[in-house]
Design a protein around this nucleic acid. Sequence first.
DNA 1: ATAATAGTGTCTATGAGACAGTATGTC
DNA 2: GACATACTGTCTCATAGACACTATTAT
Lengths: 251, 251
Amino acid sequence: MPYEPSDYPPFAVTVDLVVLTVRRHALSALVVRRGEEPYRGWWGLPGGFVLRDEDLSTAAARELAEETGLQAYGPGSGDAGVHLEQLATYGEPGRDPRMRVVSVAHLVLAPDLPAPVAGGDAGGASWMRVDQLLDGDADAVNGRTGREPLAFDHDRILADGVERARAKLEYSALAAAFCGPEFTVGELRRVYEAVWGVVLDPRNFHRKVTGTPGFLVPTGGTTTRQGGRPAQLFRAGAATVLNPPMLRPEV
Amino acid sequence: MPYEPSDYPPFAVTVDLVVLTVRRHALSALVVRRGEEPYRGWWGLPGGFVLRDEDLSTAAARELAEETGLQAYGPGSGDAGVHLEQLATYGEPGRDPRMRVVSVAHLVLAPDLPAPVAGGDAGGASWMRVDQLLDGDADAVNGRTGREPLAFDHDRILADGVERARAKLEYSALAAAFCGPEFTVGELRRVYEAVWGVVLDPRNFHRKVTGTPGFLVPTGGTTTRQGGRPAQLFRAGAATVLNPPMLRPEV
DNA sequence: ATAATAGTGTCTATGAGACAGTATGTC
DNA sequence: GACATACTGTCTCATAGACACTATTAT
């Protein structure tokens, strides 16, 4: 039974990006206005086709740079850049009306960007609050919430990415990926509060994160940019996994 | 810029399966002897091409049934069958010498099968101990361990699948997926011990799992198949997430 | 002074881990 | 009887969560 890959149906492979950041105390995602059919004029996740000799994570990093100017580092890469990891793959027949397209979604965690992102080949890019994008009962039977759904199955991809980010904050040191190179404990706490949508006790949070070895490294500096008493500045430590984990409050 | 998916390079898309079980106190994976080039005669993970109108998880379930006879249920499906979830996607150029192949790996957790699995279109299938398949320094500079590496990048896929399984036992109720429909607390403990490669205190384990609401449901029966005092039989409860988690001992 | 945030200390409830001891089957 | 496993109870230590209190800035 000599079967060759070329005997099998051809697929197009794309990467889609769930780029998350925390802006003004709200978890936000990067969306682009689509300039092409299908779903022309709709908001969607940034992404694009994987090139012939390109690895999946390379394609994701390239698309990220094209659409946002952000430099990513994959697992095990250098020290500068934002966090990028593979999220999941979506390949339902019919998810793209043109042909069979399999999309490998990636998750990017970025610090708050000073300038609004510069669009690539898409019409325009924008940060939108995740709670407004997802908003529970989307096109539920009666609940007209007025929000526009994203193109393709991007609502579901975004939801999966947000859930992954929320879960990873519990047992990894990734929260620092939402901050700049130097940050205070209070700023880190506000990241957790925005991503989880909860309020955390500042005192217990401080004790917890400063007591976890390898999580935070004091840089020696202080800042008063949050007002109040000057706060120590930290940078992310070498620890990548948090043990014991930081559990989100149950409600 | 009218760009169409068909303008972009064609990929073949496959699913590969990391099928894990616990046999004789050892975490084991299903491997098949390859009957075709490339890597003819090597052991590899079961898998195959995704068909034209087939979802990714459907393809994984189909390949699983073809090669093992196991019936899978995806997330949100019925009540019979083994656990199947998407693991990750591997698309490095050159991972298949024939052409560009992107493989969506899936993880299957199955109870110990009474009969050795019946092969599909592959030469033969076999359970092999994970510790023997992975075994630290594979083709390390000098450490000739004598083990044969798997075809393609299946060593890495297997390692990722094993790590996912180990991590999921901590915070999910998935350990029961390795047991039959009815099992004792001791049998469940031996699953944890085999997957994590540790020894757990039977008394504390018993207190922990029976005290977690929704994890175990007593069926009323008892068994002495492990020897000693008859043990209560349980089936998996509705709980899917374990809170607080069952942390693996550090060391 | 007031307000705001940073940081420390202290108490309590809960759970993990160590381990004594009892129960009930097979040989 | 010995032995194996199941199960219960008790103790100790670590940690999460609640919250009082002090410290240091801006206005």
